[in-house]
Amino acid sequence: MQVFNVPKSIKKDCTFTFCAGCDHGVAIKLVAQVIDELNIQDRTLAIASSGCSVLLYNVLDVDCIESPHGRGCAVATGAKRAFSANGKDNIVFTYQGDGDFASIGLAESMHSALRGEKITAICINNTNYGMTGGQMGPTSVLNQVTTTSPMGRNEQYHGFPIKTAEQIALCDGTCFSARVALYDYKNIINAKSAIKKAFEYQIKGLGFSFVEILSSCPTNWKLSPQDSHTRIKEELSKIYPVKVFKEK
């Protein structure tokens, strides 16, 4: 019995162009599997954002639009409202990095959650700006060394990181908010079930559903893929707890 093959919602013969060991590939695979399992490939619209996450549109075999940096949830809002105005029940989700979702796009993200837009947002949190070379992002943790916090993130000088899943859970329009990780098989399976739940919440029309995924960025962290996962397990998941914060 075939227990695994490349998901139907992944384009044929495409190659992922992420760095070796980057968790983006795992996250996209999980999204594709969920789309397959829910049988929504032919009515799903993906919103890709700026940064590494934009590469989603090269690999995911669903309709896709690229959003300006940070505006993913606004673009998704417009698309979902337009579908709804035409009596269509298409599924709309965003795939954004933490800089996109929680820094430049925080207003759009949070207000979409507050309005309870019936969309799903997936935020890849790798605690830095990956595509531009590893600068300090909104989620870079205290003491983290990045190219723009060479002495480490200092709370007095740089301020504090944002705990996105917790913040989104506080919004009344949010029906599901969870943080997951991908550093081992168990977490990957849990992440998949959270992503699936988020999509199911949208299908049921219950409000804004959100999954923050703690992801590795081996290139910019200057760690091996294995050590990157160890960092998530032993350091990041203590600061950013892996759990479901809200489930309506």
Binding site: M1, Q2, V3, F4, N5, V6, F18, Y185, I189
Partner: peptide, 21 residues
Amino acid sequence: LGCAICAMVCPDMAIEEVVND
């Protein structure tokens, strides 16, 4: 074991098929 753990952790979907017999 045909557990597909390898395929799930592979970030590049280089493990394209797992058969469990």
